[in-house]
């Protein structure tokens, strides 16, 4: 697998392999020198067609902690602005011999358009309302770390599922790993045909209290304030009233229920400060894990054949990374 375009295209085994590799990466963070030389001499281009601070910084730190060089290209543009075409930009970077293109774009499918045209590995850092695979992976890693499993867990994704690439990548990943997922939100923000896409493992609920009963994990999506203008909602106040996660509602879930949020948060809209800053909140842990997951992804896709489950390749990878980790220890 040359590129990481989405979790839809990955198997359970592939996802688990990335999550396993994330652990040693995270272990690095507790050391005084957080850098290993495994991607020394590689160049990672961060090609962001949409403003993003956290995802971009996270990828940048991930690349740097693996000793890769990074190139930041922020293209201030909306999806309809005329200018150099996406393919031309990608081919220009290709001519600069970058090894990775980490691509964020407001149009769904943009990384799929670029990937076959370039030799560089394309890592989808969020495309339109399609996928955000590394976010899906870091959410799963966060769950796995605390719960030791994903299989059989009851997970609620609440909010603007319709416009959320985070939700789609979560849904693909979590269902592949055997979780039972309930998506919850007003009917205007639930994607058409979602049950047909994801099958029996996904339930739809319009009632957050009902959805939360017995939940092991709640993933709270960010509510874009513009949704009010599209008449998806009458008001933010009403949204908070019906779908905001607060302490009272959290009590309906299991006592050890984890609260996830991809950030940035609208405090007091989709999540109360009490919950966001409370003991069940994994929000800052997710930020830390995001770097580890992205290190694992960059590392695993950097091989001559991209990402592989070939046992001999895996051994080589392990042999390469273990001494690097030991050296620093």
């Amino acid at each position: 697998m040359k590129d990481l375009l989405g979790l839809e295209k990955m198997t359970r085994a592939q996802i688990e392999r990335i999550l396993e590799t994330t652990r040693p990466m995270k272990a690095l963070f507790t050391r005084s020198i957080k850098k290993v030389p495994v991607l020394r001499g590689k160049t990672v281009a961060l090609l962001f067609f949409e403003p993003s601070t956290r995802t971009r910084s996270s990828f940048e730190l991930a690349a740097k902690r693996l000793s890769a060089d990074t190139l930041n290209i922020a293209v201030a543009t909306s999806s309809v602005t005329k200018g150099e075409s996406l393919l031309d930009t990608a081919k220009t970077l290709e001519a600069m011999k970058v090894d990775f293109m980490v691509l964020r774009h407001s149009s769904s499918g943009a990384p799929d358009l670029v990937a076959p045209e370039v030799k560089a590995r394309v890592i989808n850092a969020g495309d339109g309302t399609h996928e955000h695979p590394t976010q899906g992976l870091l959410d799963m890693f966060t769950i796995l770390e605390k719960k030791d499993r994903v299989d059989g867990l009851r997970i609620v994704i609440v909010g603007d599922v319709l416009h959320s690439r985070v939700a789609r990548s979560n849904l693909w990943g979590l269902t592949k790993l055997g979780a039972q997922v309930t998506v919850c939100g007003p009917a205007t923000l639930i994607p058409p045909g979602i049950r047909e896409v994801f099958g029996k493992k996904v339930q739809v609920s319009f009632n957050l209290e009902e959805a939360l009963r017995g939940a092991d994990v709640i993933n709270v999506l960010r509510l874009q304030r513009e949704r009010q203008e599209g008449n998806y909602l009458p008001s933010l106040r009403e949204y908070t009233e019906l779908y905001g996660l607060n302490q009272n509602r959290l009590r309906l879930a299991k006592p050890d229920c984890l609260v996830l949020h991809p950030g940035p948060m609208n405090r007091g809209v989709e999540i109360s400060s009490e919950v966001a800053d409370g003991p069940r909140s994994m929000i800052l842990e997710q930020v830390t894990n995001g770097i580890a997951v992205r290190m694992a992804v960059l590392y695993m896709f950097s091989g001559p054949n991209g990402f592989t489950l070939d046992p001999s390749e895996i051994e080589k990878e392990n042999n390469a990374i273990e001494p690097a980790l030991r050296d620093i220890a």
């Binding site: 769904s108 499918g109 495309d127 399609h130 690439r165 994607p191 058409p192 045909g193």
Partner: peptide, 15 residues
Amino acid sequence: NEGPLATRLGYKGIP
């Protein structure tokens, strides 16, 4: 076309 495929691809649907 609006429906499961558009949802899967993340494309906006036309009902």
